[in-house]
Amino acid sequence: MTTITKQQESQPTRISRTQRTRVVKAVRSLLTHLFLLVGSFFFVAPLIFLVSTSLKASRQIAKFPPDLIPDPFIWANYSDVFIYAPFGTYLLNTIFIIIPTVFGAAITSSLAAYAFARLRAPGKNAIFMVLLSTMMLPGVVTLIPTYILYAKLGWVGSFKPLIVPVLFGNAFYIFLMRQFFTSLPRELEDAALIDGCNYLQIFWRIILPLAKPVMATVTIFAFMGAWNDYFGPLIYLAEKSQYTLSLGLQVFVQQHSTEWGLLMAASTMMVTPIILLFFFAQKQFVQGIMLTGMKG
């Protein structure tokens, strides 16, 4: 970090500096809020649209240009969702897939990422390129051989194709975590090595605690990947009783006529936990920033 000390600034007197800082801070905070608020509108719009549609009758959904406020409010869209499909079961199925998936993504991938980031071994960079290249071939042309493989293993019709491969780590997560591990300071590890720690201990006691932000990020990605996956469950699950939430939404999509009100009500119920989860996870982070006095 030699760069930090390189630059020097002419030192103004103490008093004028704090005054200026206060004004600058107030203006900046105001501008930031303005910016963030206006920006939020663009990004929250689909949610508003989703919720608004979920409370409309189909005759109002068909209106153009669309109304914002439902008239009348069709609250029954929410209760009727459960007549159409056992979404409780679908939720359990989804969670059943998500837990090992997230676990695998976080643990296996982070181990490999640590090795790629920090440990020296012949051929490591070549292996890393192979790892990246697995993301470069479109899945549409490997689908049939992959399916045949799972069929031979007797896995088609079970959760296994959706869970087991992920347990072995995922190229995207490995690459992501590798990038983070490489920017952690090296001194801590060197000290630990001298203290006689082995690499697993270093990983467990030093790297992982420092890598919380990226671990959280990977968890979010893994969670959402499994939560939203439509194609995997469609192809590999055989019975309605095994369905996940995202596949379950298909019950509202009929030939020529989709029950939009119900679909949107079910979708709203499906995204709400994600939004809450994300919000509370972020609250933890934000507290972290406040405590350490983040400045930027």
Partner: peptide, 24 residues
């Protein structure tokens, strides 16, 4: 009968063709 989802136009064809060409 074990009824399962065919999928929409895109994924439906993909599902049917993949499974049939894999023999399942």
């Amino acid at each position: 009968v074990n009824l399962s989802e065919l999928g929409d136009a895109v994924f439906g064809d993909q599902k049917f063709l993949t499974a049939v060409s894999a023999g399942t």
